[in-house]
């Protein structure tokens, strides 16, 4: 059967690997290439690399760097940040990306999702949603790395993105990001119930049990995590071992070295 994916997320800014809390207070935690090499040897299921400065700086993805990084990545490599045209998608796929992540540009130009899916296939278009809770308890989508409030509600927007042709939804809770207290389960559930494409849960994982909750309680197809791998002793391999013990089908549960 299809295995549930565990996906380390790499956030990239000013040539370094960073991690923050609620999309703020970025800490530099190393460089990207060694991290990719390490995750390769640990046989992770996929890697997501987000260039979080590109949109703010109004520039395209850094294809040259991405080509160097992709050459070292022997698992699926999903790349986002700065994509505003289909030419950017083509260049990223050419540089070695397997899938691309589109977030901010989709609010201004939803047709980008449709054009991307038509030209390159829905399977390589990952639509990303960053959501925050509002004081009245509902959720709103935020663009530009969590800094700009939009008028979209996450579940509705996810459905629109699916209709436009997105192949997957990456849903990140800005509030829970980096806090390591667990995913925002109601948010993830609202989205996985609304769409029929795979949903990747992101933001808040701090313990292996959080993966199990996102999958079994909120219906996620895959789980992404960053802080817990950077700042704790926990590893993707042990995470999958734990998921397997809880009855979730995962790939390669034996722990390597």
């Amino acid at each position: 059967m299809l295995k549930t994916r565990l996906i380390p997320t790499l956030l990239w800014k000013n040539f370094g690997l960073v991690k923050g809390v609620s999309f703020d207070s970025w800490r530099r935690i190393g460089t990207v290439l060694p991290a990719i090499k390490v995750y390769n040897t640990r046989d992770v299921d996929e890697l997501v690399l987000l260039d979080i400065a590109a949109t703010d700086e109004g520039r395209e993805p850094d294809y040259e760097s991405i080509e160097e990084l992709a050459a070292e990545c022997f698992v699926p490599f999903t790349i986002g940040g700065g994509i505003t045209e289909t030419a950017h998608i083509r260049n990223l796929l050419k540089a070695g990306a397997d899938k691309v992540v589109i977030n901010s540009a989709a609010y201004e130009n939803p047709q980008l999702i449709q054009q991307g899916a038509n030209q390159f296939g829905a399977q390589c278009i990952v639509a990303s949603i960053d959501a925050k809770r509002t004081p009245d308890g509902s959720y709103r989508c935020f663009s530009h790395c969590g800094s700009k409030k939009t008028n979209q509600h996450p579940a509705n927007w996810a459905q629109t993105l699916e209709q436009l042709g997105a192949g997957e939804i990456l849903i990140t809770s800005v509030d829970e990001d980096g806090v390591m207290n667990g995913y925002d389960l109601p948010l993830i559930k609202a989205i996985s119930q609304r769409v029929s494409i795979p949903v990747i849960a992101s933001g808040g994982a701090g313990h292996y049990s959080h993966f199990v909750e996102a999958i079994q309680q909120a219906g996620a197809s895959a789980v992404a995590a960053a802080s817990m791998f950077h700042f704790t002793e926990q590893t993707p391999a042990e995470g999958k071992q734990h998921m397997a013990e809880k009855g979730i089908a995962v790939r390669n549960i034996r722990i390597i070295g």
Binding site: G167, E168, S221
Partner: peptide, 13 residues
């Protein structure tokens, strides 16, 4: 089947 998501994405046998 709403449980079967398309595209088929991920590791399978």
């Amino acid at each position: 089947d709403p449980e079967i998501r398309i595209p088929h994405v991920g590791w399978n046998e």
